[in-house]
Structures are given as C-alpha cells and as structure tokens.
C-alpha cells in the first residue's frame, strides 16, 4: 500500500510537467494531452501503483475559458484502494486527444460518448462514431453553445451575447 504523499513524489519525479492538485479530497493530476497515454500507462503498469481500473472518462465544456474543453479520467488502484483524477485540457481550435481505448478497453464506449457529446476527437480510437445520438445528428449536444431546443428571445440587453455565442440563432 502506498500513501498519497509517496504517489505525488513518484509522479512528479517521473513526469515533472504534471501539475498536482486536489479534487474534493481526491488526488488530481493535470496532464498535457500528449503525455496522457504515457502517464495513464505508467500508472497502470508500475507494480506498486497498478491503477488498472478506469472508472470513468468524460468531457467538460468550460465555455469562455481557454483551453475550452477538459477531459476527465478517473483511475482506481484495487491494490492501494485509491482513486486518482486526470484532467486533460483540450483547446477548441484543435479538439484532439490520444485515445485510451487501447490501454483500457473500457474507455471505448466512454470516448465515443465524449466524442458524440463534445466533438472531442480521440486519435487512434478503433471506431470513433456517435453512440447515443442518431448518426445524422448535427453538432455536439453537450457543448454549452448547443441550443436547448428552443430559441432564446433576443432583446437589446442580451442580443450581443446571443449572436456572439450562438451563431445559429440568426439562421
């Protein structure tokens, strides 16, 4: 069993660019997207860490922030009874991120869902297709600027915001 401080040291020694933080009491690493497979694979394969179980993978759209998107991955080590969070920032201009589906097959469906909902492209994924929405759906519904099915009425006090954030409002 390793404790939290040891894990923090191990990670910062192995990957000096990884930022270490705290998410509601859980250990949290902010990882550059190029490093993601290396960090996740290392956490999985080091015998004393063995974060072999990928709990979940999802996207978050922080509209108005740069980089706009974030992919959040939670890994669990059965051996150490510990859970860590990986945050990977993804810019809007180039929404790509290396896939984890080859390292953790359980990420397959969840990456498809994240692609479906946010338009984040997981490079190297064996079948990146929509999973919950219909195949011919336009747009990615969980993006914050995706319309909710009704149009916000433009008044003088909010029309600038609407036209800036929802280009399809004029269509």
């Amino acid at each position: 069993m390793i404790d939290r401080a040891t894990l923090e040291q191990r990670v910062s020694a192995q990957f000096p660019t990884v930022r270490i933080g705290d998410e509601a009491g859980d250990l949290c690493f902010t990882v550059e997207r190029e490093l993601l497979p290396a960090v996740a694979g290392w956490l999985r394969d080091e015998p004393d860490l063995s974060f072999t179980f990928l709990n979940q993978l999802c996207g978050v759209d922080y509209l108005g922030r740069e980089p706009r998107f974030e992919v959040v991955v939670h890994l669990t080590s059965f051996q150490n009874k510990m859970r860590v969070t990986l945050h990977i920032e993804v810019p809007e201009a180039d929404p790509t991120i290396p896939t984890l589906a080859l390292l953790f097959p359980t990420a397959n469906f969840q990456e498809r869902e994240t692609y479906d909902m946010f338009g984040i492209i997981f490079t190297g994924h064996p079948g990146l297709e929509r999973i919950l929405m219909p195949e011919d759906w336009l747009g990615h519904p969980q993006r914050k600027d995706h319309p909710l099915g009704y149009e916000e009425v433009a008044f003088t006090h909010n029309e600038d915001w609407i036209y800036a954030n929802k280009p399809f409002a004029k269509e």
Binding site: P37, A38, G41, R44, D45, L102, L103, P105, N108, F109, R112, P126, G127, E129, E135
Partner: peptide
C-alpha cells in the same frame, strides 16, 4: 517512453456500422 499500443489485442469492441 514505452507506448502500450494494443494492450489487450484479444478484446475487440466493434461498432454497429463495422458489422
């Protein structure tokens, strides 16, 4: 850095359109 491509070659999860 070792890349772990296809760590589970026995596990395949096809999509409906691949079928």
């Amino acid at each position: 850095m070792v890349m772990h491509a296809h760590a589970y070659p026995n596990i395949e999860i096809p999509t409906p359109s691949q079928i």
